[in-house]
Amino acid sequence: MTSIAQRVDPGLKIKASIEVGKRRYWKALASCAAFQDRTTWECLRVLHTDIVAVWNFHDPHGYLYSHDFRKLVVNMVDKLDVGPTTNPDRNVTVGLSTVGAIAGIVSVLAGPAVPIVVPIVASAVIAKWVYDVYQLSGVVLQRFIAYIVDLTLVLQTLYLVSDSRELSRRVIKLAVASYHASPTSGEVHNRIQGYDRRLTLLERADRDTLDKIIELMELYRIDAKEISAVRAQIPSVDSVPDEPW
């Protein structure tokens, strides 16, 4: 983990996350006994901690491990229940175009010195399903996949906007709002909703689930050179006072 934490290429950090996930719970979401009799919220906490630790952000206040940030991610995942947001037959453009789209959104949101509004947290009420006891189903697996991928891609966006500085609530909200408003978010959820696999064979279900997580992470992974090409377009948020969640 120490070696992983020293890597500065976000693409390598996503690869490192995948390696950690293979050794931990991602490889057995469909059959993991450790999740039995525990609430979904408790299970997601374990996954959340594993993923955040890989990135090694300068987060002295522990914002990325806070209840508020985890609630942001859960409520983003909750949007899976709304239905597809993009055309699944459309060719998805990734790489530099994806980074450029997010950078453009960041530039707009970070410009004015006004509080950043994250639409997915309009209500203080957290999604009800996180309090349910973990029970295997297609919907549950979709939500777990979405949580892992959404959180990872939000952290990738945060890497883009934080530029190795100390994290504030404002910059984290900026990363969440930018990812949520980007085409990537809708495309990811659409691909997860199209993930229709059978649960008859747990061994296959586990392997297929892990493969789907890796596929989505690799598809939307961006390299250091791509980030450096657009970072100059993003205004600094250092000079703006921090704000509540």
Rank of each mutant, 00 (worst) to 15 (best):
P10G: 06
I14K: 07
M76C: 10
N91R: 13
D81A: 14
V133E: 13
M76L: 14
A5F: 07
I214W: 06
Y195F: 15
K173F: 01
A53M: 12
Y131V: 15
H67P: 03
L199Y: 05
A5M: 14
W55L: 05
F35L: 09
G21Q: 07
L136C: 11
V118N: 01
H67K: 15
H180C: 12
Y159M: 04
L158E: 00
Q6L: 15
T98M: 03
I145G: 03
L72K: 05
G11P: 06
R198Y: 14
P10Q: 09
Y159C: 05
R207F: 14
D81H: 14
T39N: 05
K173T: 02
P88M: 07
A113R: 01
L47R: 03
L96A: 10
P244Y: 06
P244L: 09
E215F: 12
S17H: 02
P235V: 03
D163A: 11
V77T: 04
K13R: 15
V106E: 09
Y220P: 00
R143Y: 14
I192G: 09
I192D: 09
D59W: 05
Q142V: 10
T184D: 06
A110S: 12
P235R: 01
H61R: 15
V92T: 10
K22E: 15
S182Y: 08
I18H: 08
T200L: 12
Q6F: 10
D81Q: 07
I227P: 00
V121W: 06
E203R: 07
R70W: 04
L72M: 15
K79V: 06
V74F: 07
A16H: 10
G100M: 05
N56S: 14
D37F: 14
I192P: 10
L80R: 00
T209N: 03
S31R: 09
Q233E: 11
Y147I: 11
A127K: 11
I102P: 00
V130W: 08
V188M: 08
F57A: 06
T209Q: 06
C32P: 02
R24C: 13
R143N: 12
V230Y: 00
S182L: 02
S31I: 08
R38H: 10
G95C: 08
S123Y: 08
D211V: 10
Y159W: 12
G194H: 08
V92W: 11
T209H: 01
D81I: 01
S162P: 02
T2L: 10
V121Q: 11
V125I: 15
A146L: 12
T49P: 04
E166K: 02
Y25P: 03
T49E: 13
A177T: 02
G83L: 09
E42F: 13
V114R: 05
S182A: 11
L160G: 01
H189I: 08
R197S: 12
I105K: 00
A229S: 14
V154P: 00
L219Y: 03
A30R: 07
N87M: 08
E218I: 12
